[in-house]
Simulated scan of single mutants.
Amino acid sequence: MAEELLRIEGLRAGYGEAVVLEDIALELAAGQSLALLGRNGTGKTTLINTIAGVTRRHAGRLFLAGRDVTNLPPFKRAEAGIGWVPQERNIFKSLTVEENLTAVARPGPWDVKRVYAMFPRLEERRQNMGNQLSGGEQQMLAFARALVLNPRLLLLDEPLEGLAPIIVEELLRSIARVVREEGLSAILVEQNPRLILSMTHHAMVLDRGRVVHRAGSEELAADAQTLERLLAVGH
């Protein structure tokens, strides 16, 4: 049995006094991936942000590979092995592509050369500043930056949002390669469940800050009725 990578117990969190998440429990084994689903405003981003360490926790605990990371600040969680690609991307806009990557790179299988091989477009623009990139290129760079951290757990918050279809395809291929073929543990948030159910092992649906459904990704993908009921996904 694969070792446990992430465990969340009785999590209650939000922003300031506002509580968004209630009694969240989650376990993810090493090498496994999770599709985190739900309609807009149900707490998906808040959960990702809480794992990354940027929300206010009111109760509960978080463990990474058995280590209690509940009280660690975001940079310490990154050091512990959490790679985070937020919706805002958080690239350094005043640094070049290459500087963005080398500034955060840590030893491991993913290095700058390897992410360039996956995203030739980034290599072509390696001397361009972050703010000179298109939205799709910025998203590739944000993903590449998370990879060169060589994380144990990758958090991807709507990485395909607002991108041109050709870029979506390229990113989907890259994410599928990293998650399915290379077995990097990941939690993916995406509005279109069908895009990520095919590449993840497990699925969890949030509604009003609570877990309302858990299933294997394959099982949920095949259950049109439940998808329609929970996520208003058309057949």
Rank of each mutant, 00 (worst) to 15 (best):
E181L: 03
V97D: 04
P74H: 07
E158S: 10
E181M: 04
F92W: 03
A186P: 06
L172W: 06
G16K: 14
A78N: 03
A13R: 06
R56W: 08
G130N: 06
L147S: 08
L197E: 05
H58S: 11
G162A: 11
F143A: 07
A232N: 11
L95H: 08
N131M: 12
T226C: 05
H213T: 03
P159F: 05
D207T: 01
I51L: 15
E161L: 14
M140L: 14
G10K: 11
W84Y: 15
N128I: 01
E123C: 10
E3K: 09
R152C: 07
L6Y: 00
E22D: 11
V97N: 02
E27C: 10
L101T: 10
D207I: 04
E182H: 07
S94A: 14
L153Q: 11
Q138R: 13
Q127C: 01
L153T: 08
A221G: 13
I51G: 13
A65G: 13
D23P: 09
T102L: 13
Q32V: 05
F119S: 14
T70D: 11
M118V: 11
Y15T: 03
D111Y: 09
I91D: 01
D223F: 06
G14A: 13
I196M: 13
A18D: 01
L227D: 03
V178T: 14
A186Y: 06
Q191K: 09
L163D: 03
L155E: 07
R121C: 00
E4T: 15
A103D: 07
R61E: 10
T102C: 00
N90R: 14
L195Q: 07
Q191L: 00
A18W: 03
D111E: 11
L34D: 03
Q138W: 07
I24W: 10
V115F: 05
G16V: 12
G136L: 07
N100K: 14
V97T: 12
Y15N: 02
L188R: 04
F75M: 01
V205W: 00
T96N: 01
G10P: 04
T200C: 15
